[in-house]
């Protein structure tokens, strides 16, 4: 059961004590206040006074959210120092969050504090991002070294007579590498499919050496036996690890910008 302490409309003295206390105990702190924000680092910015939500997480991450919009107006993913002091000249609380690499300083001046919530939150939940085979393919195409070798991507969805090759790469030695991706356990039909693609390529390419690889989270015993017999290879991929590479912004391809395509 989460441990929550709430301070409603605290005066600046009480607010400072509550924040200091919560900081020293590494709690999650949520502050609703009228504040201004100054950022100094790679560039600099100033945000005039307004009513906002300040979030300080137990790991030192700091975010400042305005009343609208989903993105924080300012944030520090990590900080080496967070401190709060009372500035008697200005009659305000001054919250400073410092990051050292790169050097960035966020200074929040609080003139009025409406609410402070100190929370000790437990969150052990594992996160599963569902990604499609296409997304796995796009991530591997952009980062072929994730497959464990110094690969270079040449083409994706390469058309061959029997169908489409997921990933068409080159390895360090200059060999052609054909990859068949499976989101679930690879079975015998995946091995057969890969063999068909390679045979089709061998028909019009002079290169003798074409490597065929099945990339999947796992492979059935029968499929593996067939794989070895056909002199193909298996590389295990960790879908959860790959999911981290999915860009939430949805990186656009050039064609997304063209009209009527």
């Amino acid at each position: 059961m989460a441990n929550i302490v709430v301070h409603e409309k605290p005066d600046l003295d009480r607010a400072r004590e509550a924040i200091r206390n919560a900081l020293s105990r590494r709690k999650n702190i949520y502050i609703l206040a009228n504040c201004s924000v100054d950022y100094f680092g790679r560039s600099s910015s100033h945000l005039d006074f307004g009513e906002r939500l300040i979030i300080i997480k137990s790991d030192g991450a700091v975010l400042i959210h305005r009343p609208t919009g989903h993105s924080p107006v300012n944030w520090q993913p990590e900080t080496s120092y967070i401190g709060v002091d009372y500035d008697s000249e200005e009659g305000m609380l001054v919250l400073k969050a410092l990051r050292t690499k790169p050097r960035e300083l966020v200074t929040v001046k609080l003139s009025d504090v409406f609410l402070i919530v100190e929370a000790e939150l437990r969150d052990p939940g594992a996160f599963y991002m569902h990604i499609s085979e296409k997304e796995i393919r796009d991530i591997l195409a952009a980062n072929p070294k994730l497959l464990g070798e110094n690969f270079t991507t040449i083409d994706i969805e390469k058309k061959v007579e029997p169908g489409f090759i997921d990933l068409y790469l080159k390895d360090e030695k200059g060999n052609v590498v054909v990859i068949e991706i499976k989101r679930l356990t690879a079975r015998v039909d995946a091995v057969r499919q890969l063999k068909k693609y390679i045979d089709s390529l061998k028909n019009y390419m002079r290169t003798e050496k074409i490597r065929g690889i099945i990339a999947a989270p796992s492979i059935t015993k029968k499929a593996y036996e067939l794989l070895l017999k056909e002199k193909l290879e298996f590389k295990q991929i960790n879908i959860e690890a790959l999911a981290k590479h999915v860009s939430k912004e949805g990186k656009k391809s050039l064609f997304d910008y063209f009209k009527g395509v």
Binding site: K158, K159, Y204, R206, Y257, F258, V261
Partner: peptide, 17 residues
């Protein structure tokens, strides 16, 4: 050199303002 069948679909003419 051997004429490679690049066998790719024709890329459309990009239209953009």
């Amino acid at each position: 050199i051997l004429n490679i069948e690049t066998a790719e679909e024709e890329l459309p003419e990009p239209r953009i303002e």
